[in-house]
């Protein structure tokens, strides 16, 4: 009897072990199920490279190039800001900061990671947006730049914690060796620690960027939501994620618009999948 009970439990455990794989496949299948219907009507090329997104015009024009460019612009901006600051912070915490301050800083970073994105979006709206507007004398502060700054902020916890782990996992002997040769602390960090941790730091940067591309609420609240090809970083843009979030509520189930939003979902899923697999490979390379 007990043997039978344990047999059932162990099978259940195996089943749950496989659940993650099951859910990833399930997510992809359902995105495909709803999204691929679009390509009976619209060609994939026209969808990806079409220059205008007017989903409710007659007939609808469903080109997501402006949205892709919007996402790219905001993401690139966020990466430019967050990578140097994030990696710098990771180095400071892992190498320079005294032990007690280190704990405080880490708590601060964890705090940032815990703040819901809608709260950050709200704070961005009331503080950052007017600031950008006044600083550049713009008609509106809801711009790609505001989005980039806010998103950089949201990417930092990811970058800092993973880069920090990468630095910790550099063997102590490397550092001791460099010190023994008379290098200063900074020379050791710059010439020894950073190169040795490079694949982990690369993974940190990629996962940070992955977080930025997938971020929805904050970006929807502060980038202005103009689905046009962006002319400058000081213009309003709309990202892939924000488009789904803003329009799915109004799209009729089974309409072209509905299918197109799922097709955007496929694009996002594929991007995040690629980023995560590559980052994972980087992290594993570091271990071996």
């Amino acid at each position: 009897m007990r043997k039978f009970k344990e047999f059932v439990i162990e099978k259940l455990i195996l089943l749950c072990g496989l659940a993650s794989i099951f859910f990833v496949i399930l997510i992809f299948l359902f995105l495909l199920k709803e999204g691929l219907a679009l390509f009976k009507i619209e060609s994939p090329l026209k969808f990806l490279f079409g220059k205008s997104w007017y989903p409710i015009s007659e007939p609808p024009r469903l080109g997501i190039l402006p949205l892709i460019l919007g996402s790219l612009l905001v993401t690139a901006g966020a990466a430019v800001i967050s990578v140097p600051i994030g990696v710098g912070c990771a180095v400071y915490i892992a190498e320079v900061a005294p032990l007690r301050i280190r704990e405080v800083l880490k708590a601060g970073i964890e705090l940032l990671a815990a703040i819901p994105s809608v709260v950050l979006g709200f704070i961005g709206m009331v503080t950052l947006v007017p600031l950008v507007k006044n600083m550049f004398h713009l008609p509106t502060g809801l711009t790609a730049l505001s989005g980039s700054i806010m998103l950089a902020f949201m990417a930092m916890p990811t970058i800092v914690s993973i880069a920090e782990d990468a630095l910790y996992s550099v063997p102590k002997t490397y550092k001791e060796g460099a010190f023994a040769l008379g290098a200063t602390h900074w020379q050791t960090i710059w010439r020894v620690m950073l190169p040795a941790a490079s694949s982990g730091i690369l993974a940190a940067v990629m996962l940070g960027i992955g977080r930025v591309i997938g971020e929805t609420m904050a970006v929807m609240m502060i980038t202005g939501n103009a689905a046009v090809i962006p002319r400058s970083i000081l213009a309003p843009v709309r990202t892939l994620t924000a488009t789904i979030a803003a329009e799915m509520g109004e799209a009729v189930v089974g309409s072209e618009h509905y299918f197109a939003l799922f097709a955007i979902g496929i694009v996002l899923f594929v991007i995040s999948f690629a980023i995560n697999v590559t980052a994972d490979l980087c992290l594993h390379k570091k271990q071996s």
Binding site: T216, I275, A279
Partner: peptide, 28 residues
């Protein structure tokens, strides 16, 4: 493979979860 799936599940954009929930639970 399981570990990779977990990493990916953690990386899927939250709005894509919304789409998935809509397609699977709400509609299907």
């Amino acid at each position: 493979l399981i570990k990779l799936a977990i990493v990916n599940l953690a990386g899927v954009p939250s709005v894509v979860y919304g789409l998935f929930g809509l397609a699977l639970f709400v509609v299907f």
